[in-house]
Simulated scan of single mutants.
Amino acid sequence: MEKSNQLFNQEQQIIHRLLLNAPFIPSVGLLTGQVGIALAFYTYYRHTECAVYGDFAGELLDNALESLDKSIDIAFSNGLTGIGWGIEYLILKGFVDGCGVEICENIDQKIMESDPRRISDLSLEQGLEGLIHYVLIHISASIKQNVRLPFDSLYLKDLYTVVKQACQEDIPDSFRSLAEIYMDFIEKQEPIDYPLHLFSFIDIVHLDTDKLTDYPLGIKDGLAGLLLKEITNE
Results as ranks from 00 to 15, higher is better:
184 D>G: 03
210 D>C: 11
224 A>W: 15
158 D>V: 10
46 R>A: 15
90 L>P: 06
48 T>S: 15
43 T>P: 00
136 L>M: 02
182 Y>M: 09
62 D>E: 15
22 A>E: 03
16 H>D: 10
113 E>H: 13
155 Y>A: 09
67 S>H: 07
209 T>W: 10
49 E>N: 13
34 Q>E: 07
233 N>H: 15
90 L>Q: 07
219 I>S: 11
53 Y>T: 02
35 V>T: 12
35 V>W: 11
212 L>Q: 14
193 D>I: 01
178 L>A: 03
201 F>N: 02
213 T>R: 14
61 L>I: 00
10 Q>T: 14
15 I>T: 04
120 S>L: 07
231 I>M: 14
156 L>Q: 03
90 L>I: 03
130 G>T: 08
36 G>R: 11
204 I>W: 01
84 G>T: 05
11 E>D: 09
26 P>M: 06
124 L>I: 09
163 V>S: 09
129 E>A: 12
194 Y>N: 03
51 A>L: 09
53 Y>F: 15
189 Q>N: 13
103 I>Q: 10
189 Q>M: 02
196 L>E: 10
193 D>G: 12
197 H>N: 13
41 F>V: 11
223 L>T: 02
149 L>Q: 06
127 G>I: 00
85 W>R: 00
65 L>C: 08
4 S>D: 01
88 E>D: 12
203 D>A: 10
136 L>Y: 00
9 N>D: 02
202 I>S: 00
112 M>I: 04
32 T>C: 12
154 L>T: 11
97 D>M: 10
82 G>I: 00
138 H>G: 03
37 I>H: 14
221 D>W: 00
198 L>T: 01
167 C>H: 07
86 G>T: 00
146 N>D: 10
221 D>A: 13
107 I>Q: 03
196 L>T: 00
21 N>E: 11
184 D>L: 10
73 D>T: 10
174 S>F: 05
200 S>Q: 06
23 P>H: 04
131 L>A: 01
190 E>I: 07
218 G>H: 09
1 M>Y: 06
63 N>W: 11
221 D>Y: 05
224 A>E: 08
108 D>S: 13
35 V>D: 03
232 T>A: 14
8 F>E: 08
158 D>E: 08
226 L>M: 08
